[in-house]
């Protein structure tokens, strides 16, 4: 039998900061962590005093070598794990982590002649790792991000993304409330938006889409409808538990 502890490492919360009123960046020091690629995820396991265990998957914002892992977690109102990670976990507290996981939703330097990233809400996290990896590799292949979010106050890593404007430009798309003086009304991404604000089909971009299931479903269908090959669109959906 496989022991239940197989593959799990202990991680200590070594850094934390608010990203938005309902989201938090958490950095864990994980001895033995082998480093990770951009876009991979990790399973986090919490064990209650009575032995009850809960496991959730989170994308990593961090990338590369080193024994620190950065997650960015949004509090889900009915969540079992995310409110604890966002509001209660304190520096020095421990959780268990399993990973790095997944080789499919991964961006590697040199793999594509150009890359389009499309984020819905907190789905931006693994795409931030890709932007960081692109910078770390000094990759000259074009990369750009289309970030759909409800309001400007919901933005993750806005300052950091702003710092990459020259190499990885970000287009901000608001679905509920645009910023004052914004030139575009709020609303969901349409096929027209995608045509205007993403790399064109003829450039044959590799496209990464991450967000809630409905967002990913709508965007990936629109991309194929615009003429992108289904094989060039990689998706990561997240549920709500």
């Amino acid at each position: 039998m496989i022991p239940a502890s197989f593959g799990w490492r202990s991680g200590t919360l070594s850094g934390a900061r608010r990203l938005t009123p309902s989201a938090r960046s958490l950095t864990f020091r994980v001895p033995g962590w082998p480093g990770n690629e951009a876009g991979q995820h990790v399973d986090v396991r919490l064990t209650a005093p009575d032995g009850y265990r809960a496991v959730r998957s989170y994308s990593m914002a961090s990338v590369g070598d080193g024994d620190e892992v950065e997650l960015a977690v949004a509090r889900l109102p009915d969540g079992e794990v995310s409110p604890f990670l966002v509001d209660e976990l304190e520096l020095g507290d421990r959780v268990e982590l399993r990973g790095p996981l997944g080789g499919f939703f991964v961006w590697r330097s040199g793999q594509a002649q150009c890359t389009q990233l499309i984020a819905g809400g907190s789905g931006v996290v693994p795409l931030v790792a890709m932007v960081r990896a692109h910078a770390a590799a000094d990759d000259r292949a074009p990369m750009q991000l289309l970030y759909s979010l409800r309001t400007p106050a919901d933005a993750f890593y806005a300052d950091e993304l702003g710092g990459f404007t020259a190499t990885v430009p970000t287009t901000w798309h608001y679905t509920r409330t645009p910023p004052p003086g914004g030139d575009r009304p709020a609303g969901r991404l349409t096929e027209h938006d995608l045509r205007e604000q993403t790399l064109p089909v003829e450039n044959e971009p590799l496209i990464y889409v991450c967000g809630p299931t409905g967002f990913v479903e709508a965007v990936s269908h629109q991309l194929v409808s615009l003429g992108h090959a289904a094989a060039s669109v990689r998706t990561e959906r997240f549920g709500g538990v």
């Binding site: 496989i2 197989f6 593959g7 995820h41 399973d43 496991v55 998957s57 399993r98 990973g99 996981l101 997944g102 080789g103 499919f104 939703f105 299931t213 409905g214 998706t235 990561e236 959906r237 997240f238 549920g239 709500g240």
Partner: peptide, 14 residues
């Protein structure tokens, strides 16, 4: 709602 096959990676890694 459903997720992508990516989420299998953790359980399968064991």
């Amino acid at each position: 709602p459903y997720l992508d096959g990516n989420v299998l990676a953790g359980a399968a890694s064991d």
